[in-house]
């Protein structure tokens, strides 16, 4: 266990104007985090696991119709509604400000699932299992979940720990902004995203590319949204869950809906 930690405040920026809905992030996450294979029944029973999912919304009518893609993953809320309701602290904020899930402890009440406004928590209704040979691929850094518990995006915490170990081994001391920028730590979905719609960084790092967006959105709260200088906003901002994710609005030259107040 890495003892000494630098004060990071991890965050992610999702640029909806870059995202093209290609699903690369979805598969990357499934591979990295030992997500159970979604067989046909998982979809028919609407129990499919996708820690990051691409929501597709229709807008307008043919032929002036658009499909909109929104990647939705755990928002790692500072003020996470899922945390206070867990009777066993199986989901909590860790030292790095991530909302993490302690599978061993979860007893499967599913209260956190109800109380997550973003629906990014997944319950293991069945025992996940893989064909013998496919088990060789499972990531040894990530616990394989059992039936009856809840799982969710962890910001790939196992990669964070590896990065810390790596940096320490390289004699670089602690994982810090420079070593981070050296590409030592990137969540699987961020790394995969071909359009660079997902950007990961440290809100405490003034040089971080995500910094200006967090500054802007933090400066002007939901009531002063229109004063913001960037396209940034938080999902369901009015709920005051204070997500560590910021979305950048899609730019729409010829909208099929006309001017939008935002």
């Amino acid at each position: 266990m890495v003892t000494s930690r630098v004060d990071h405040k991890w965050g992610m920026v999702v640029d909806l104007d870059r995202c093209n809905g290609c699903q690369a992030c979805v598969v990357a996450c499934q591979v990295e985090n030992n997500l159970p294979i979604n067989d046909k029944n998982a979809f028919l029973q609407s129990r499919a696991y996708e820690w990051i999912r691409i929501e597709r919304y229709w807008e307008g009518e043919y032929p002036n119709i658009k499909a909109r893609f929104i990647p939705v993953l755990c928002q790692h809320c500072e003020n996470a509604p899922c945390e206070p309701v867990c009777p066993v602290y199986a989901t909590y904020h860790n030292d790095d400000g991530l909302n993490v899930q302690l599978y061993n402890r979860c007893v499967g009440t599913r209260y956190c699932i109800n109380n997550c406004p973003y629906q990014v928590r997944f319950f293991n209704y069945w025992q996940p299992n893989w064909p013998e040979r496919l088990q060789n691929q499972l990531n040894p850094d990530v616990s394989v979940r059992t039936r009856g518990i809840t799982e969710k995006c962890t910001f790939c915490i196992q990669r964070l720990r590896r990065a810390e170990l790596k940096v320490e081994r390289q004699g670089g001391g602690k994982l810090n902004d420079t070593t981070l920028k050296a590409g030592n730590y990137m969540p699987a979905c961020v790394q995969a995203c071909p359009t660079n719609a997902l950007v990961f960084g440290d809100q405490n790092d003034v040089q971080s590319p995500i910094q200006p967006y967090f500054d802007d959105v933090n400066r002007y709260d939901v009531h002063h949204e229109h004063e913001r200088k960037t396209r940034g906003y938080r999902l369901l901002e009015e709920m005051n869950t204070k997500p560590n994710l910021i979305y950048l609005k899609k730019v729409e030259p010829n909208s099929v809906k006309g001017e939008h107040h935002g």
Partner: peptide, 21 residues
């Protein structure tokens, strides 16, 4: 993967929030 209801925006959905002209 999509739900059983047509994924169109109801007044204030994420679906509309992401549009900015």
């Amino acid at each position: 993967f999509e739900g059983i209801f047509p994924a169109r925006e109801i007044a204030i959905t994420a679906g509309e929030e992401i549009i900015k002209v």
